[in-house]
Design a protein around this nucleic acid. Sequence first.
DNA 1: GCAAAAGTGTTGGAAATACACCCATGT
DNA 2: ACATGGGTGTATTTCCAACACTTTTGC
Lengths: 248, 248
Amino acid sequence: MTEVKTDINSKHLHSKTLKGLQSEVQSINRVALSVDCVIFGFDENKLKVLLIRSDLKKYQKKFSLLGDLVKPEEDLEASAYRILKQRTGMNDLYLEQVHTFGEVSRHPAGRVVSVAYCSLINVQHHRLKTLDNDLHWHDVDSIKELLFDHKKIFDACYKWLQKRVQEHPLGFSLLPNKFSLRELQNLYEAILNKKLDRRNFRKKFFSMNFLVDTGEHEQNVPHRPGRLYKFDYEKYEKNKKTWSGIDF
Amino acid sequence: MTEVKTDINSKHLHSKTLKGLQSEVQSINRVALSVDCVIFGFDENKLKVLLIRSDLKKYQKKFSLLGDLVKPEEDLEASAYRILKQRTGMNDLYLEQVHTFGEVSRHPAGRVVSVAYCSLINVQHHRLKTLDNDLHWHDVDSIKELLFDHKKIFDACYKWLQKRVQEHPLGFSLLPNKFSLRELQNLYEAILNKKLDRRNFRKKFFSMNFLVDTGEHEQNVPHRPGRLYKFDYEKYEKNKKTWSGIDF
DNA sequence: GCAAAAGTGTTGGAAATACACCCATGT
DNA sequence: ACATGGGTGTATTTCCAACACTTTTGC
């Protein structure tokens, strides 16, 4: 049995007068808050991540994630969408919050707490002016070192993606609207970084019943063209199972 | 193909001079950052959450999560541990970050972005002076309304717990060191809010091979006493499977 | 001896895995 | 014709779900 020692002098955030709270909120008790986006793409059968070369002289050799400070009057998520829009010109990206990184010393310019968002982008719909603004796609397995703690943030998002893609159909956001099953399998193999059995993979996805056969086929492939499918989100929502099981 | 429009005037967080960045980080571009903890306990076969009655006059009828502002020189996670320590007197709690809530209007005192942490506590090891400081355990299914957006935060953490407890052995943090399988099952039933088959439940946990029979039995129960087990984290680490499967 | 929960096995169905052959197309 | 990947089926195994009776203890 542990003795409970409540620090009498410490007042609780929600246990003060509103006025007192306001002054605290407006006081020095504040930090800079940023959003960093890990933007994944899929191209040439490789999983890619979008990085920018830092302009900071001191760090000029390093690449960094796309981020910016959250504006005082801006919802957190809006901030993430703004960054995506600025960098990709697209509004309708898949975006999800992953984790917040708040070590005191993570940023050399002072206390900056960063909320990491993961985004998935269809590189076909989006041709970056990569040369214009020092944006580049990098193979995920080539990422060795990034600015500040961005490698840690990237790692967290990559792990998150690997897990999430197995329990929720995110992957389609990385593919063209119409895709062959081979492309879909290549995508999963690239994300999970392992080979999958083709027949079992097909069985699995067909049994989930949200792939719609467009009737079209691949073009200009040096082999038998595969059928092209679309992902039907409505069908997914209807059929999705409420998973439950203990699985350590 | 979407046209990429990069806002030329918007500079990237990591694409400025260090000096410029520093002034921005120290400027008005800052927000108050808080941590709110959702502390779960398990008692009398019910899943409980620890809440405090708000002292704010205006909100006096409402309960709230335990939270506080993050101090400028304090790591984010340290902040969460500090709150737990203050409220429970305990250091060795299970604690994990869940989500960050950053809507502009979520807090009436101004812009406060809150990072939600979920914590699991063994109520046997910790007898709160509940009357002293307006702390109370509440049945999770009795939570209707909380201060500000705390209900939303609570819901997110509860869902997180339901999911997480099925893929990682967190549950043991809520139980005494020695527990019967009945207690363990009651815990899972309380968290998942559904009945489980006793024989399959036992089979499942025994097959995972991290329960150690202490040789002891329950005391003072009005029926045949059950065996008491301990959770062996080492064994878990050794035997845990690297789960992989596509499961939508 | 009765109430209450502990403890234990088997079976059928579903899902995952492993595996090999023919087909359609471009060159 | 051949190289390349598309497309398909089956047998095996593993995992999950459903289900009922005997045992031990306190009262």
